[in-house]
Design a binder for these strands. Structure first.
Lengths: 251, 251
DNA sequence: CCAGTTTGTCCAAGCCATTGACAACGACTC
DNA sequence: GAGTCGTTGTCAATGGCTTGGACAAACTGG
């Protein structure tokens, strides 16, 4: 027992676990997302992740310094997935619309992962590339200098915030989600005409609104506003969605 | 706020803990928000909350069935605080703008609390009242039926998502926040002109953008888009926020 | 063949959420 | 006033979590 030279006698320890090199960052991130998709954010822990990998509860710490570190890697993977194969389109409105839709779809596909990492920035190459494309569209719209910088942040943060918000709701456990939806349904229908006349007026339509339609509505509103404030129209034809402004600034 | 835990100077003996009735839901929620504002979301735990109240680590469980239950109460308090004293304005654009600004300011004042509860709905009276006011503005804009319902959800969810997203970032610990900002600054400045020409073009302006300006930009874009899609103009004169009105559209 | 580094495992410390048993206290009945 | 009961604060305990340190197997370079 004194220290030292290998007492290789007979400890049947035998390392029942994995072989060296079985775990890589890529594998760990993939398994994390699988677990998150399956069990939600609450059930996600380092011990469970290790066991799911067939390894020790603490094995992941050999590859990520902390759980937060792993989280950033997951965020990076999400951005990468959302922006895979993205190309700039001819028209700047189309480019921005496409990016917002892509990010949202990816986040909705992995709500638990997204809700944990939506507000983090990773500076990964995918992120930088997306930023360049967005700014390109903003410049194409005729914004310049500080205004362009501000508009990029406005659109980029809008897209992230919206997708993150939707993901956060979907990341709640089924019961809380169901309870929330049911409660609203109930609250809408039982509202009194006197106390809340406006809700009363649309009480029948409120529960029927679908998430996809809500998103397309706000996206359309944002794009309409952008087009109006832009110095240059987009390459595609549609000048505005509903009515043209009487002041006639078609440019 | 009325009943502070009245503590007697020096109880002679026994009285190892608090008197009966020392804790109420209101007091607990207030102390929770104080702790969250001070120490952030990470350092917020039931034991700490109990100790901060001068009570046992588990005392809070006598008033809230679970931490999640407490969370909903905190969310309710936030909405209440945001909407306190809100009145409908003459112009529907002004009403919607005011609500978005109010919610954001409250969330920014309590980022940790907000980031934990932004995606929850509480069905509290304050929330219902806010909903009624928003729908009122949407109806005033001339939207009807299912379209009005959809637009209400679009604007309401937009406001919540944006404020929640900003709060989530501010709720990160100082170091991560600082690191994020610094990293972006660095990434912007060191970007190559060839690889990312668009970022390069605004690299100097990007780090200077302020959060308040970003918010006002997206808000202005959304309101411009809404005005364009609305069936009726708002009561106030301004036809658009950003550009100077050359010839005011009449009320 | 050996030394050094990686990486997987074991073990343990310290924190957390939550629960059940117990005890003091207030209200209510007789 | 005495007894009963529900409320609420405390205590002790359980099981899970993150994380760090010690050890050992396996791969690497010499």
């Amino acid at each position: 027992m004194t220290a030292a030279p290998r007492m290789r006698a007979n400890p049947p320890r035998q390392q029942r676990g994995l072989r060296r090199g079985s775990l890589t960052k890529e594998i760990i991130v993939s398994e994390s997302m699988r677990l998150l998709d399956e069990d939600g954010a609450d059930g996600f822990s380092m011990p469970k992740l290790g066991r799911a990998l067939g390894a020790d509860q603490t094995a992941v710490y050999r590859h990520f310094a902390s759980k937060d570190d792993l989280l950033l890697a997951i965020a990076d993977r999400l951005i990468e997935e959302a922006m895979a194969g993205l190309e700039r389109l001819d028209c700047w409105v189309g480019t921005l619309t496409e990016m917002c839709r892509r990010l949202r779809l990816t986040y909705l596909a992995h709500p638990a992962a997204a809700s944990m990492s939506a507000c983090r920035t990773t500076q990964g190459p995918a992120e930088i590339r997306a930023v360049d494309i967005i700014i390109g569209a903003i410049l194409e719209a005729g914004f310049e200098g500080a205004e362009a910088a501000r508009m990029y942040r406005a659109i980029g943060d809008f897209s992230l915030a919206w997708a993150g918000g939707e993901a956060a709701f979907l990341a709640l456990d089924r019961s809380a989600q169901q309870r929330d939806r049911a409660a609203w349904r109930q609250a809408y229908l039982s509202v009194s005409r006197e106390a809340h006349p406006n809700i009363w007026q649309v009480r029948a339509e409120l529960p029927e609104v679908r998430d996809d339609d809500i998103f397309e509505s706000i996206l359309s509103v944002v794009m309409a506003g952008l087009r109006q404030q832009a110095r240059r129209p987009c390459a595609c034809h549609a000048p505005a969605i509903s009515q043209p402004p009487p002041g006639g600034r078609r440019s």
